[in-house]
Design a protein around this nucleic acid. Structure first.
Length: 160
DNA sequence: CCCTGATTCGC
DNA sequence: GCGAATCAGG
């Protein structure tokens, strides 16, 4: 794949529109791996991934309490040994339809780590990303995060 | 099995 | 840098 500026532009646009990597690949005539690979390298905002490879520390050794003898009084309360259920703070991130385009939208530069809320019509020359300072741990600035993180609904076919 | 996206690693 | 292979969850 020859990643011309145009190709990258298209990738960003389709990515911002919320298409799946496979769909983007189909539209661009490349594999989804190429898409996700490039997107990754471009530091495009990661989509809610179905998997998590990190922070999967084995469910605690749960050291069998070496209960020596069936002496009831010596056994510790079961709840003290129960493996705690790790509750992941999962936030269903659903990019809302970017029909709003009335903000100032300072767009210094897209790339490193800046607000990736799409500004303008994807594919057109004026299209860009907000570029504002993102909230901690989020791909959007405070204003756009408010728009982006909405009720978990159908996230397909919702782009303008 | 289908889908999804992320990471790895030889090229 | 690239992306197929692989992984991993739904």
């Amino acid at each position: 794949m020859d990643w011309t500026a145009e190709a990258i532009e298209r990738l960003k646009a389709l990515w911002a529109e919320g298409h799946s990597t496979a769909e983007i690949g189909r539209r661009m005539g490349i594999s989804k791996n190429a898409v996700v690979g490039k997107a990754h390298r471009l530091n495009l905002p990661a989509r809610p991934s179905p998997i998590r490879r990190d922070a999967v520390p084995r469910p605690a050794p749960v050291p069998r309490a070496p209960r020596p003898m069936p002496v009831a009084r010596q056994l510790p309360p079961p709840m003290l040994r129960a493996a705690p259920v790790a509750v992941a703070p999962v936030v269903a991130a659903v990019p809302a339809a970017p029909v709003v385009r009335a903000f100032p939208a300072a767009r210094p530069r897209f790339g490193s780590r800046s607000c990736c809320w799409p500004i303008g019509e994807p594919g057109t020359s004026g299209f860009s990303f907000c570029g504002g300072e993102p909230m901690a741990g989020k791909p959007y600035c405070t204003e756009h995060a408010a728009l982006a993180y909405v009720k978990p609904r159908d996230r397909r076919e919702d782009a303008a």
